[in-house]
Simulated assay, not measured.
Amino acid sequence: MLATSTANKNSFQVTTPSEQEICITRLFNAPRHLVFEAMTRPEHVKRWWGCLSEGYSVPVCEMDLRPGGAWRFVNRFPEGEAAFHGEYKEITPPSRLVYTEIFEQFPDTVSVVTSVFTDEGGKTRVTTTTRYPSKEVRDAVIASGMEEGAGLSYDRLEDLVAQLQR
């Protein structure tokens, strides 16, 4: 993973609790309502999601944040673009978010993402578990560099919540 000076970067962990799951955890120096907001409002998501370095952006960030509502993000990077979309299944602010995720390059591969926001003395631990349709899909996601990208995106999220608290 690339070195950064972002707070709590060492709290970032990626595990594989089952053959079909990846679990990512990270502690953020912000109250959970603010972390939840930063992860569920398009104007905030565009500032951290997939923003790994210069040349990365999120030109499309559509979110209809309600059960049954759709979302779609397009990540632009030096080599091209990648698009993801899904549907919100459960929204319990500021503690839980469940949605489907489809990488548009593989439109028949649906994953289910569950994020839990836990208060830890004014800080927030986000635990995101993604369940893939098979071990092969999970392993392909791991091999794609997902761990480094998620870590850098969460560094940007940490930077954003610090700015939002000022």
Rank of each mutant, 00 (worst) to 15 (best):
Q13E: 15
V14P: 11
T15A: 12
E19D: 15
T25C: 12
T25K: 08
R26F: 04
N29D: 15
A38R: 06
M39S: 03
R41E: 12
P42R: 05
P42C: 09
P42F: 09
V45Y: 02
L52F: 06
Y56E: 04
Y56G: 04
V58D: 03
P59V: 08
V60E: 09
E62T: 08
M63Y: 06
D64Y: 03
D64H: 00
R66E: 14
G69W: 01
A70F: 10
W71E: 04
N75M: 15
A82E: 12
Y88W: 07
K89P: 05
I91M: 02
P93S: 02
P93C: 01
P94I: 06
P94R: 05
S95H: 08
R96Y: 06
Y99C: 08
T100W: 01
I102N: 03
Q105G: 13
Q105I: 14
F106W: 11
D108F: 13
T109P: 05
V110H: 00
S111Q: 13
V113E: 02
V116A: 08
V116C: 08
F117N: 07
E120A: 14
K123Y: 01
R125N: 00
T129W: 07
V137P: 09
V137R: 05
D139C: 11
V141S: 07
I142D: 07
A143R: 09
E147F: 01
A150P: 05
A150E: 12
S153L: 07
S153Y: 06
Y154V: 05
R156P: 02
L157T: 03
D159E: 13
L160S: 00
A162Y: 01
Q163H: 02
L164G: 02
Q165W: 02
Q165C: 08
Q165E: 04
